[in-house]
């Protein structure tokens, strides 16, 4: 018997493969390294955000603030660089801890005041967006030699594809997060919290420490995604990255993570983002299909995976 928990992962992977094969069969140039590396490049910031979202959702929570945190991080970074003439690395060194602190505060409020993550991170979403617009409502272009250097930095691959710095950052953090989730005590605690917080507490897991760390980590990754997003757009914009939290949540669910928590894989989320990306690419290649089909197809995919999860879980012997 194949382990049940891998079934959604396999389905996502197969769908991704099927989608890719359909695209390749239909369009010339679809099956190229370039298309694949572009998937990485275009989705790097979403991938990084979705890593954090996976953690939060596995723990049984949700983080609606990530889109706004991306915008805030981008705006703050670009303001520090262009108006205060900081070196980008200095700016990153300030922005990243600040972002992490933001998440830690949300985690603290959720834990201490026993408020629902949904509503607390919703407030966080408004707060981060509000701070971003307060700093600047305009899009701030970044013109710094460091950014030019970063743009040129990439690993060339055959077939005119190349992995840029953003993709590399994602790959690095994917490895780190996957290792943390599957090989560290903290990772086990995250799963434990999502499985049953009460049992986890009775078994000696510190709920406070775990909850706060989870939201801190999610905000850290969103902040990092915001920085990566500035590599992509060469600017910071307070009204950018709207709705990224929904994309991230969708990717997590499509990747086979249980929205009620306790089960899921970081790898699944990555596949989920790629699946959404391939659908997008397919629609772009096709040219006649309109962009709204992406939303509808993603909605249908979500429905499919949620019902699938229901069916898979309905079969397990449940008690207490």
């Amino acid at each position: 018997m194949m382990a049940q928990r891998f079934i959604p992962l396999w389905i996502t992977a197969s769908l991704l493969l099927v989608m890719f094969l359909i695209g390749s069969a239909q369009f010339e140039g679809f099956a190229s390294i370039r298309v694949v590396t572009n998937l990485f490049r275009d989705n790097a910031f979403l991938l990084i955000t979705a890593l954090g979202m996976t953690l939060v959702i596995i723990s049984g929570g949700i983080d609606l603030s990530v889109g706004s945190v991306i915008a805030l991080s981008g705006v703050l970074t670009s303001v520090l660089i262009t108006e205060y003439h900081w070196h980008p690395l200095q700016a990153f060194a300030l922005v990243l801890p600040l972002g992490t602190l933001f998440g830690a505060m949300m985690g603290t409020i959720i834990h201490v005041y026993k408020l629902q993550p949904f509503i607390v991170t919703l407030a966080g979403m408004f707060l981060a967006r509000g701070m971003a617009t307060t700093i600047s409502e305009e899009s701030i272009a970044i013109d710094h030699p460091f950014y030019d250097a970063i743009a040129d930095l990439s690993i060339a691959l055959p077939g005119s594809g190349s992995l840029d710095i953003s993709s590399l950052i994602f790959i690095l953090f994917f490895i780190i997060i996957a290792t943390v989730m599957h090989y560290s005590r903290f990772g086990t605690n995250v799963y434990a919290l999502g499985g049953n917080a009460q049992s986890a507490e009775l078994m000696g897991v510190s709920i406070a420490k775990t909850t706060i760390s989870i939201y801190a980590l999610s905000s850290f990754l969103a902040t990092l995604a915001g920085i990566v997003f500035t590599f992509y757009t060469f600017s910071g914009y307070a009204l950018g990255a709207v709705g990224v939290e929904l994309d991230a949540i969708a990717a997590v669910v499509i990747g086979g993570t249980l929205l009620t928590g306790g089960r899921g894989f970081v790898l699944g989320t990555v596949l989920g983002v790629f699946l959404m990306g391939v659908i997008q690419t397919y629609i772009t290649f096709d040219g006649t299909l309109s962009s709204w089909w992406t939303k509808i197809v993603i909605g249908l995919l979500l429905f499919f995976f949620i019902v699938l999860q229901k069916l898979l879980n309905g079969r397990k012997p449940s008690h207490g």
């Binding site: 086990t188 799963y191 434990a192 999502g194 499985g195 049953n196 009460q198 049992s199 986890a200 009775l202 078994m203 306790g262 089960r263 397990k316 449940s318 008690h319 207490g320």
Partner: peptide
């Protein structure tokens, strides 16, 4: 150390 009445373990682990 305690084993509580309902099985207080984590079914997902």
């Amino acid at each position: 150390s305690t084993v509580y009445q309902e099985v207080n373990l984590l079914p997902n682990l």
